[in-house]
Design a protein around this nucleic acid. Structure first.
Lengths: 157, 157
DNA sequence: GCATGATTACTCGGATACAATATGTCCGAGTAGTCTCGG
DNA sequence: CCGAGACTACTCGGACATATTGTATCCGAGTAATCATGC
């Protein structure tokens, strides 16, 4: 899985802690964790296309959350960065070569693809069950001063 | 996810249908589904390293299953091909740059990494719950003549 | 005829190229603030 | 002093390089069957 997923998740939490009052530039978000600014910008664009954040150009521009954290699931972010298609893709090799049978035999889904899909469904279900607000709550339990530190750094830049 | 996983799963089922009496070469297994022979060989090597199949060199050599299908889980095969490490890897960017706090603050696992691990655990649990024998049973329900076709092709090569 | 040893054909195994995707960078389009200038 | 218009600085957005990983191939090490040979 791409590193961009991790960056996007942290950035969403940071945007929430900063507050939706002001837009934050990709450069600021990147600097806070020493990430490549232009590349993080690219990932944020993907979040914008998915409707998770909104972007505004020009001075005082940047990104802000499009909706509250409890309305954003982990699945939303992963799908925005990684793309919508499943990790395991069945290429129907059972229909290739001497192993192939009559076409009407393949109406049912390949048993192997079905088994893999079942596992991937469990993964997606778990990702959908957790919102970014759940993650935020746990993060603030571990580091209660994280939001304040972020706002302080941003103000005294 | 690598295509090798699909190839390996199909090849394991094929090996079971052929029977463990004889070893089958990578070239035969590949030809049955029109796969690149040398590359499938590479994947089978990975299965051999993981102890899922055993390999024998020389004439009349090839691969055979190391144990019964009901003792091989989907997780075993996926781990053998894809490697043991998780898809989402936390690079601890929370500890980098101005966002970093005192090192003792990071005793607990990153909340984001924890959430992603929970989902991946659900995926792995589902993969471990399904054995290749379960998949074989479903496959034979769909195509009862698959084993016979395979053996026939192999005999009349 | 049978045992023995060299030969040979065949297979896995890993080292080696090639391609696709992920990672990282750069410059242009567009926008909001700012400055200048005239009334 | 105040308003309008041009200008400038700043940001996103996507097009363009680079690195890493997955894909595919090839040749050598090792092995078991085969065949020749001598007893």
């Amino acid at each position: 899985m791409s590193d961009g997923v991790e960056w996007a998740l942290h950035s969403c939490l940071n945007l929430a802690w900063i507050g939706s009052g002001q837009a934050v530039t990709a450069a600021r978000l990147a600097a806070y964790h020493e990430l490549p600014p232009a590349y993080l910008n690219k990932q944020l664009q993907a979040l914008a296309r998915a409707g998770i954040v909104t972007s505004v150009s020009g001075p005082k521009g940047g990104f802000r959350l499009a909706r509250a954290l409890d309305r954003i699931t982990l699945m939303d972010v992963v799908a925005a960065i990684e793309g919508p298609d499943e990790a395991f893709r069945c290429t129907e090799i059972r229909q290739q070569g001497p192993g192939a049978a009559a076409p009407e035999s393949y109406a049912a889904e390949c048993a192997i693809a079905g088994a893999m899909s079942r596992a991937e469904l469990a993964w997606r279900r778990e990702l959908m069950a957790q919102t970014l607000d759940d993650v935020r709550a746990r993060a603030e339990l571990q580091a209660p001063d994280a939001p304040e530190r972020l706002r302080h750094w941003l103000a005294h830049l």
